[in-house]
């Protein structure tokens, strides 16, 4: 209500009359989750729209194709949700992911080590990048935008140097592509990459809502100074949060490499922006302190659906990017409208 800004409320009115009881609680819950509800509704509308526009859209193979192409961005987005909730940003997601993929490639093809070692090295590469980002932000106090922008360039360069600017193919590493393209559930044509996305979504959701790290992400994003004075070691937790995001980055690198059966050192730039877009569309606030994992998954699916739907309608790639941009504007604007109503 506008009046809340303009009237000096008396002490009793300061308690904004919120509906009480079970009905009130569910209403409050709905209001808090409005952005996710809206995002989910938009996803349904989008699917319905593309389904009507093109009958091929709603086929199982196309749907699983959407999910497969969403997997990488989705995994990146899950990790960076934590960072964005702290009011941070993570721009090295795309190239960091590429560096992780290249490291996996080096370990598996050049050194010929077992599959598991390659996967672990890929994830650790991501974790290390995240750790360094966290250290730069928390200890050296470099603003997250700058710290991760620099890391974006460093990771891009290193990926090219280590790979000798040429793609690394995993033809000598049998079974590697199964990580993404195999199908663990018998009888269902659902690629493993999608299963990994869903599994990681569940894990991330539990971490965000149930763990100390998740709770402190919100605390830091809401008011870092107050969180620190409450006895929360904000520096330590920020490093942990960026490292967690880095782990997801590493997993995304492995999944991408397995899907393409190659590590493409020149690929990767632009993924970070799509991932951040997914997070924002899912209702996580760039100002920090607010966000959800389920929202991020829906956001990633929206990005994937729009891209796929427009492609299937033969709309050129250039225009797809324009549409994604418009979707972000719309998502952020609904959030602003919602906030305005609240205060």
């Amino acid at each position: 209500m506008k009046q809340a800004d303009t009237v000096e409320p008396s002490p009793d009115e300061m308690l904004r009359p919120a509906p009480s009881g079970a009905l009130g609680a569910s209403w409050n819950l709905l209001r808090r989750q409005l952005q996710q509800v809206l995002a989910f509704a938009s996803l349904i509308v989008l699917v319905a729209f593309f389904g009507v526009a093109n009958p091929n859209f709603l086929t199982w193979s196309n749907m699983s194709g959407i999910l497969l192409s969403t997997a990488v961005i989705g995994i990146l987005a899950l990790g960076t949700t934590f960072v964005i909730i702290t009011a941070g940003i993570e721009l090295s997601l795309g190239t960091g992911m590429t560096l992780a993929a290249v490291m996996t490639g080096v370990v598996l093809t050049s050194w010929g080590l077992p599959l598991l070692v390659g996967v672990v090295v890929g994830i650790l590469t991501g974790a290390l990048i995240g750790f360094i980002n966290g250290f730069n932000v928390a200890v050296l106090k470099i603003p997250p935008f700058i710290a991760t922008l620099a890391m974006m360039l460093i990771a891009q360069g290193l990926a090219l140097v280590i790979s000798g600017t040429a793609p690394i193919y995993f033809t000598d590493a049998p079974g590697f592509t199964d990580i993404s393209l195999g199908s663990l559930i018998p009888g269902v044509q659902l690629p493993n990459a999608v299963l990994i996305l869903f599994l990681l979504t569940a894990i991330a959701a539990v971490i965000l809502s149930k763990s100390i790290l998740g709770r402190y992400s919100f605390a830091i994003g809401s008011n870092e100074e107050a969180a620190g004075l409450s006895g929360i070691n904000t520096g330590k937790w920020k490093i942990a949060i960026y490292t967690l995001s880095g782990c997801f980055m590493g997993i995304a690198g492995v999944v991408l490499a397995a899907r393409l059966n190659s590590a493409q050192p020149s690929l990767g730039i632009g993924y970070e922006l799509q991932a951040i877009a997914a997070v924002v569309i899912g209702g996580t606030s760039l100002q920090g302190g607010k966000g959800s994992i389920i929202g991020t998954l829906i956001g990633a699916l929206i990005v994937g659906t729009v891209t796929n739907g427009l492609r299937i309608m033969s709309i050129p790639q250039e225009w797809q990017t324009v549409v994604i941009g418009l979707v972000i504007l719309a998502a952020v604007y609904t959030d602003i409208l919602r906030r305005r109503k609240q205060t």
Binding site: I212, R215, Y216, F218, A219, S222, N223, E225, A226, A227, L229, S230, G231, I232, G289, K290
Partner: peptide, 21 residues
């Protein structure tokens, strides 16, 4: 407001902020 509370978070969150562990 600046140093004591996480204003966007609820009463429960703020009361438990120091003792969460």
């Amino acid at each position: 407001k600046r140093l004591g509370l996480m204003l966007d978070q609820d009463v429960n969150f703020n009361i438990l902020a120091s003792s969460l562990s």
